[in-house]
Amino acid sequence: MNLHDTLAANLNLERGPLWGIGWADLADDRVAAPVGWGERAADIDWATTVLSDYGVGPGEHCLMVSDGRDYWPRQVEAAVTALGGFVGNINTASYEVRRLSVYLRYLTPKILVGLNTKLAEAIGRDEALIALLRAVPHVFAFPDAVSELRRAGIEARAISPIGPALALPCRHGDAAHVDGSQFTVRQHADGRHLVLTTGPAREFHLTDAVVAATGTVRDRCTCTLPGPVIDLVG
């Protein structure tokens, strides 16, 4: 038996019940969130719909900022590859501005996803890096980082995990969206926090759980995407 035979035998094994395990950041804890195969496919389909509006397609580069522990970057990466694009990765540490600079100079992404505050602050201190980032067509950042980037004259849109869900900004509107077929989101009574319930078909169940992410739930967006609409940047 050689490596090819071993791989072929593995492909014939019965698939386990879970695609994997992610994390859900709740207001009072970070908990493991199992992900089934069916919901994994649904999550990818939804992200693919959103990203296709940004012109992500064959040969397009998506640069991800991720420390590798969370589920939501895998959702975005799978959507990019489903559209024919390819994915580059940098870590979330502030010193990663060096690798970011190399990517921006030699492999400019169509879309940059996941900038955090530490990186945004480092970018803001480097005029050359600011100029390079302004050439990226679409920049998605965490809400606090969006404000930092905008102060540097970089147009960025907010992205955030909402517990086990993901809020992605739409191309033609002015807010972020959550997949309404998988999750419901409502405003907490404090007017700041978000309350999430998972769909019945998901492996990980939450009912009226207060999540760590904050924002304002809106009635509608100027685009036509269905599902909960959230303003992540106050």
Rank of each mutant, 00 (worst) to 15 (best):
Gly57Cys: 10
Pro58Gly: 11
Pro58Val: 10
Gly59Cys: 06
Val65Pro: 00
Ser66Glu: 09
Asp67Phe: 10
Gly68Asn: 13
Arg69Thr: 13
Arg69Val: 10
Arg69Asn: 11
Arg69Asp: 13
Trp72His: 13
Arg74Pro: 03
Gln75Met: 14
Ala79Lys: 10
Val80Pro: 00
Val80Phe: 09
Ala82His: 07
Leu83Ala: 03
Gly84Ala: 05
Gly85Cys: 05
Val87Met: 03
Gly88Trp: 11
Thr92Asn: 00
Leu100Tyr: 04
Leu107Gln: 14
Leu107Gly: 12
Thr108Gln: 15
Leu112Met: 15
Thr117Ser: 11
Leu119Phe: 04
Glu121Trp: 01
Ile123Gly: 00
Gly124Ile: 07
Arg125Ile: 04
Ala128Asn: 11
Leu133Cys: 13
Val136Met: 09
Val139Ser: 00
Phe140Tyr: 06
Phe142Ile: 08
Pro143Met: 08
Pro143Cys: 07
Ser147Met: 12
Arg150His: 12
Arg151Met: 14
Gly153Leu: 13
Glu155Arg: 04
Arg157Phe: 06
Ala158Met: 11
Ser160Ile: 09
Pro161Gly: 03
Gly163Val: 13
Gly163Asn: 11
Ala165Asn: 09
Ala165Arg: 02
Leu166Met: 12
Leu166Gly: 02
Leu166Cys: 08
Leu168Glu: 03
Gly173Gln: 09
Asp174Trp: 08
Ser181Glu: 15
Phe183Asp: 01
Val185Lys: 07
Gln187Cys: 02
Ala189Val: 08
Ala189Phe: 03
Gly191Tyr: 07
Thr197Tyr: 05
Thr198Ile: 04
Gly199Gln: 05
